[in-house]
């Protein structure tokens, strides 16, 4: 390997881990270095294969059940007193409290607007969609199938694009409700994870991709573009969400 850059720096570039200055520097280098261009192509292709192969293995449902019950049985096991029942009430109360506080404490995506949508609603909608059979109403990787499907079901046409080549294959779409209005939900895949992109019309001017928020292990980003308001939510990294948001704006 003769070129100094084709070692670690090239990988940091591919992983978006270089700052803007160094990334631009590397891109300039790339224009004249055939070795790096070839290596980059090979590594990109490897990454695409890894993503296509769907190697991610999720926990079997029995394991989830087993862990939950272990946590509870053990918890009940330590308190053999009659107070045990009260403990459970306390647990229930705590869950309600935590959920309630979280609901009110999260920053509003649109604190000003009448149709303001809270991040809690967006995350709830995302979680709801992951339950069996709720993810898509129309399942297709073809944008020309998904887009017309919305026609007549909504009072607007959401922009639908497949970003398979960029690592975000379109999985389908569905109707959803956010802040008491009907929205389009576009579903994308990302390494075995799902991303919901909620879309609804707006009269407000464009806004850049809003710095990501996160709660309960889910992240979201928000932006407005050409009369549409977007909110992407998932358990993938904030960086991935940002990447997808940029594809919508391009």
């Amino acid at each position: 390997m003769s070129c100094d850059f084709s070692g670690t720096l090239l990988h940091a570039y591919l992983d978006s881990e270089l700052d803007a200055v160094r990334a631009a520097e590397f891109e300039r280098h790339l224009e004249n270095c055939r070795e790096c261009t070839a290596t980059l192509g090979a590594v990109e292709s490897l990454r695409a294969s890894l993503q296509r192969a769907q190697l991610y293995e999720t926990a079997p449902p029995e394991l989830r059940k087993k862990i939950r019950s272990k946590l509870k049985i053990s918890a009940a096991g330590v308190s053999r007193s009659p107070a045990a029942a009260w403990r459970w009430l306390a647990v229930a109360a705590a869950i309600l409290l935590v959920t309630g506080v979280a609901w009110f404490a999260v920053p509003h995506l649109r604190p000003d607007g009448p149709e303001s949508v809270t991040s809690a609603e967006v995350i709830d909608a995302h979680i709801r969609s992951l339950q069996a059979g709720h993810l898509t109403d129309v399942t297709s990787t073809d944008q020309h199938t998904v887009k017309p499907w919305f026609d007549g079901k909504l009072d607007f046409i959401p922009p639908v694009h497949d970003f398979m080549d960029e690592g975000f294959p379109l999985i389908g779409g569905r109707l959803d409700v956010l802040g008491e209005r009907n929205v389009a939900a576009l579903v994308y895949g990302r390494r075995k994870h799902f991303i919901n992109v909620f879309v609804w019309p707006t009269k407000d001017p464009d806004t850049p991709i809003h710095p990501p928020g996160s709660r309960q292990g889910y992240q979201w980003v928000h932006w407005r573009h050409q009369g549409m308001e977007f909110c992407a939510v998932s358990d993938v990294s904030a960086q991935d969400l940002h990447e997808l948001a940029q594809l919508f704006i391009q």
């Binding site: 926990a59 989830r64 939950r68 946590l71 918890a75 889910y218």
Partner: peptide, 15 residues
């Protein structure tokens, strides 16, 4: 119990 609820919300989703 509060910690337990928080554990369920914060950690278990990453199973």
């Amino acid at each position: 119990s509060q910690d337990r609820a928080r554990f369920e919300q914060v950690v278990l989703p990453h199973l």
